[in-house]
Design a binder for these strands. Sequence first.
DNA 1: CGCAATTCAATTGCGCACAACTCAATCGTG
DNA 2: CACGATTGAGTTGTGCGCAATTGAATTGCG
Lengths: 157, 157
Amino acid sequence: MTTDPGLADEELLRLDQQICFSLNAASRAFGGVYRVLLRDLGLTYPQYLVMLVLWEEGELPVKRIGERLRLDSGTLSPLLKRLEAAGLVRRERSPEDERSVTVRLTPEGSALRGRAGQVPRRLLAATGLPVEDLAALRGLLDRVTAALDAAEVEPAP
Amino acid sequence: MTTDPGLADEELLRLDQQICFSLNAASRAFGGVYRVLLRDLGLTYPQYLVMLVLWEEGELPVKRIGERLRLDSGTLSPLLKRLEAAGLVRRERSPEDERSVTVRLTPEGSALRGRAGQVPRRLLAATGLPVEDLAALRGLLDRVTAALDAAEVEPAP
DNA sequence: CGCAATTCAATTGCGCACAACTCAATCGTG
DNA sequence: CACGATTGAGTTGTGCGCAATTGAATTGCG
């Protein structure tokens, strides 16, 4: 879990810089392409992520959506409200547990899945990478995510 | 640049889902670790990126900072104002071109570099990946970014 | 049973990202 | 030189991400 101490701080600063630049740039480049692809569906990228989960599950409590997407209620509550205002989902408190809110697709929300059908293919094409490389990328990303989540980083140096 | 047409839409949807989930998750996981590491410097992650550029260059017009970080004035203007309020930079209009604003490190801004010295090492350690893997990750990220930037994605399917 | 601790959603506040726009300074072309 | 086009910062408005807090419902422990 430690780093090669032979590398000077100066070199690490450069690598750190490159890693965080690259990740930031990639994340925003993806966002830009998704934005174009999703525009005529009336969805933002995070809204699309929520719809993907709902298309798979049909209905889900807010809590579960948050676990799937690593998002908390501070992000999901207003986002879901906008999806509801757009007529894509309904939200209702669960009768069994009044604390929980269940999110359900409306017929319009389900129908949108058809119109979203070409999004993945077009996105993967835009990456310009063969599927194997994308799988490798995903593997590396998942590894760092797991490590970063597990790392107990001390606040004060 | 096209995708294997043998893959069904359903499978592509799943892969797309995994790629965007993974990228999103990794980006936010990095953000979380940076947030902890930068907290006692009083910097956010995007502010740290700006400081990295300034530590390298000393002074730079807003325009150049934006080119380096792929950020526009809508993001940079308020961010730089906060850095100025924190006493880390000064902003002054260029005498040669009154449209341009030059951003300069203050002595406090320069001094902060020393306190940031351990950030890269600690971040790289938190990733749990050997340097070679991080380099590979960076390579893949840069490739997709370049391809996504180059891809002329048509708005309407 | 009763009350404290926990859980879930929502809200508030702050900062970033991006689009669309404004305004002044500069450039380029006739 | 003059005037229209372009450039560079800044502002506004929308949405996301996260921390911190609130408030109601539920759980669990004594």
